Computed example of a mutant assay.
Amino acid sequence: MNALPDPSTPSTASERIGFLLLPGFALMSFASASEPFRAANILAGRALYRTVAFAEGGGRVRSSGGAELEAAALPARDWGLDMLFVCAGGSPEAWHRPLVHAALRQAASEGVRLGGISGGSFVLAAAGLLRGRRFTIHWEHTPALREAFPDLSPEQARFVIDRDRLTCGGGVAPLDMTHALIAERMGADFARRVSDWFLHTEIGAAAGPQRGSLPERYGVHHPALVAILGQMEASVEAPLSRQAMARLVGLSTRQVDRLFREHRGTTFAAEYGRLRLDHAARLLRESPLSVAEIAFATGFSSASHFSRRFREAFGRSPAEARAAHRPA
């Protein structure tokens, strides 16, 4: 990456962009966000953008896949940046960092536009920097964020640009967001050239979905069954009865049972239970909630009932599952 220019040196031609890397950050998300700026420099024949990586304490930062990047230490003040993106994966240990939160608040006070990539939006939320802003986060981290910050409501969008907050869902979504940012400065034609450089021919709209549609994810197309599956995903905390679901779609319980048997090869109860346990497994990985709190958040009557069902499904207790995902 390029060295950060001296803020005292006038550089009207270059926007200065920082990437704050937290341990366990996704290398693919980071590359999707940073590489378009490098390509823009090449295509323009001049340094439109200068980028630098930061880390708490500086030094080498390990990504989720084990690759390491060298990064500068966080400055106490005078960031000298136009934009700063927080790149974080799915580890609560990486999200709860008071020194990082303070540094981000300082950057915000200096007028730096702040961004969150993948789990980075959680860090911005923990620093109190998303109140009154529209934003998004990777869909897998949404449950943990909603449990931790019930007053915040992330949008299910590929990316959201709301004034001085720039957030995206991770993966390849940063390609779409940087396309919009480059177009904001250099125009749509130039941004298209940058996207073509990466064979990024299908540029996603900001409000585009982060996940495949319900029919794609479940491999079903029966409208009533799709509606039930969608309602199941939306009601893991307060599960609806089979009778209530049948009334919602205008079918009998016997017809609902037949739909699950013929299209999913399972029962209503088994499908609902699997969805709730998968949701619980995500909360164990990505939130600091206790086992009892997760049991309540996924509609189980008690922590012991939840633990028993979890062990039956995954072959280990919730505490063992959580420990397996903690960094050594």
Rank of each mutant, 00 (worst) to 15 (best):
A94P: 08
A47V: 06
V112L: 04
A72G: 03
A107E: 05
Y49N: 00
T142L: 14
L48R: 07
G132D: 11
S121M: 10
F135P: 10
A102M: 01
I137C: 13
F85Y: 15
D78K: 04
G115W: 04
E56L: 13
R105F: 11
A107L: 11
E140Q: 12
A71S: 11
F135L: 11
S91L: 08
D78L: 02
E68L: 06
S91N: 13
Y49A: 02
L81M: 04
R60K: 14
A102C: 00
W139E: 02
G115A: 07
A76L: 13
G80M: 00
G128Y: 11
V61I: 15
G90D: 09
G111R: 02
A125N: 10
L99T: 13
V61F: 02
C87F: 03
A125Y: 12
P92R: 09
C87G: 02
G116E: 03
V52I: 15
I137A: 11
A72C: 09
V86T: 11
E70N: 04
A53I: 01
L69F: 15
Y49H: 01
A55F: 04
D78G: 13
A53W: 01
A55G: 15
G111P: 04
A72H: 11
H138V: 02
C87N: 10
S63W: 12
G119A: 00
P92Y: 08
H96F: 14
G120R: 08
F135A: 10
S63T: 12
R105Y: 08
W139N: 05
G57H: 11
G111E: 03
S109D: 13
A71L: 04
Y49T: 00
I117D: 05
S121N: 12
R133W: 06
S118P: 01
T51L: 14
G57I: 13
R113W: 09
G80K: 00
E147D: 05
I117S: 08
V52H: 13
L69W: 08
A67N: 09
L104Q: 03
F122A: 13
A47T: 15
S91Y: 03
L114H: 01
A107C: 10
A67T: 14
V123Y: 14
S64Q: 14
G90Q: 06
E70Y: 04
Y49W: 03
L74W: 09
R60P: 02
A107H: 05
P98D: 08
L84I: 07
V100L: 06
G89D: 10
G80C: 01
L114A: 02
R97G: 03
L81A: 05
E140H: 05
G90R: 05
G89K: 05
A88H: 10
A76T: 14
V52K: 02
G80V: 00
G57S: 11
D78V: 07
V61G: 03
G89A: 09
G111I: 10
R133M: 07
I117V: 15
A71N: 03
G132T: 10
H96R: 14
G115L: 05
E110D: 07
R113M: 12
V100M: 07
A127N: 04
A73L: 04
L124Y: 09
F122M: 15
A144C: 09
